[in-house]
């Protein structure tokens, strides 16, 4: 997997300036927000004027902006993202506590959207212009227009309020004392609605992209040649056309990571899922700027990590990637 290694290295090198810009940007936002870290710290513990000045000196906040940026970077290097006003705890602790729930939610939503979306896209794209294609194309366009948070509310009304099949919020039943598989099942039940609400927009997106990709691939010579070789239609659809059309979709997965993280803010708020997105909303509501910026920073790192994973997956799927130097063809 030499190719993947080259790719990963290139992506990581590219991430350095990007992260630097993000960090400087968050620092600028932090500076422009009213109050500083000392206000934040003392807002929760209380303290007199003398203590304020003392702390400002100790933390270097009485120095110029460049020095402060230096201190900020040094703190980041120590994985110190600052102090959360709202939680009276280090920002990183709060974030790490919530991160798993968001990863679970997003991971499931991606799996649903990518799995089902590309599957239906194959169905639509296996015979472009056919009846299944028409229905799925129109349906996906309609789904693509549905705001996730509203869909979440509708799902709650139908499945939690009317039918009482599924819980309306939270990540698991509180104090149920469930362990192991029972607990996993409980969490899964809680995740069904938020995952659907978050994933359906992307499902529509992947469906449309898969279909469009397949239409492209059908025009290529090898699809025609496969027919000339006597391969059955289903065979051509799945093993050749869908396989090739999947590649751009994988790239899309990386591009959509950031958008989906943004989407989970609203969805987690609707379903009271204690994740990163809801945390962001809480940070906004309580004017906890360090926490919000910490979330943005962690979000950016997360997006870079997802893109890294996508690169590796792409290299595994497409043998042509990174092979440029070895062959002359």
């Amino acid at each position: 997997m030499n190719r993947a290694f080259v790719l990963v290295r290139r992506r990581l090198l590219g991430a350095v300036p990007v992260l630097a810009i993000v960090v400087v940007g968050t620092f600028a936002l932090l500076e422009s927000a009213p109050g500083d870290a000392v206000d934040a710290y003392l807002g929760t513990t209380g303290g007199d004027r003398g203590l304020v000045d003392q702390l400002r000196r100790d933390w270097g906040l009485d120095q110029g902006p460049l020095q402060r940026l230096g201190l900020y970077l040094a703190a980041l290097a120590r994985l110190d993202l600052g102090w959360s006003v709202a939680f009276s705890r280090p920002v990183l602790d709060v974030i790490l506590e919530r991160l798993p729930n968001t990863l679970l939610l997003m991971g499931s939503a991606v799996a649903l959207a990518f799995g089902l979306g590309s599957l239906l896209g194959v169905v639509a794209g296996s015979r472009p212009g056919g009846p299944a294609d028409r229905i799925l194309s129109i349906g996906s366009l309609a789904l693509y227009a549905v705001p996730g948070f509203w869909l979440g509310l509708v799902l709650i009304v139908v499945f939690a309020v009317q039918l009482r099949w599924l819980p309306s919020g939270g990540i698991e039943t509180i104090a149920s004392g469930k362990q192991g598989l029972a607990r996993a099942g409980d969490i899964a039940r809680h995740l069904v609605l938020p995952v659907a609400a978050l994933g359906i927009l992307y499902l529509a997106l992947y469906l449309r992209m898969m279909r469009a990709g397949m239409v492209e691939v059908w025009r290529q010579d090898f699809a025609r040649a496969a027919f000339a070789r006597g391969l059955p239609h289903r065979h051509i659809v799945w093993r050749h056309v869908a396989r090739n059309a999947l590649l751009p979709l994988v790239t899309m997965l990386g591009l959509q990571a950031a958008t989906m993280l943004g989407g989970s803010v609203v969805i987690e708020s609707v379903f009271a899922v204690p994740g990163l997105g809801r945390l962001a909303h809480e940070a906004v509501a309580q004017r906890d700027t360090p926490l919000l910026l910490g979330i943005i920073l962690v979000g950016a790192v997360l997006v870079i990590a997802v893109n890294l994973a996508v690169d590796i997956a792409y290299a595994a799927l497409d043998p042509r990637v990174g092979a440029g130097q070895e062959t002359s063809a």
């Binding site: 590219g14 300036p17 990007v18 992260l19 810009i21 993000v22 940007g25 936002l29 422009s32 927000a33 591009l255 950031a258 958008t259 993280l261 943004g262 989407g263 803010v265 609203v266 962001a280 909303h281 906004v284 004017r287 700027t289 919000l292 910026l293 979330i295 943005i296 979000g299 950016a300 997006v303 870079i304």
Partner: peptide
Amino acid sequence: MRVTDAFQTIPGFLLALAFVST
């Protein structure tokens, strides 16, 4: 283009939240 990359790396909705709230 690096700035563009950076903006694409930050979830746009989080950025909007931060901006409006500040």
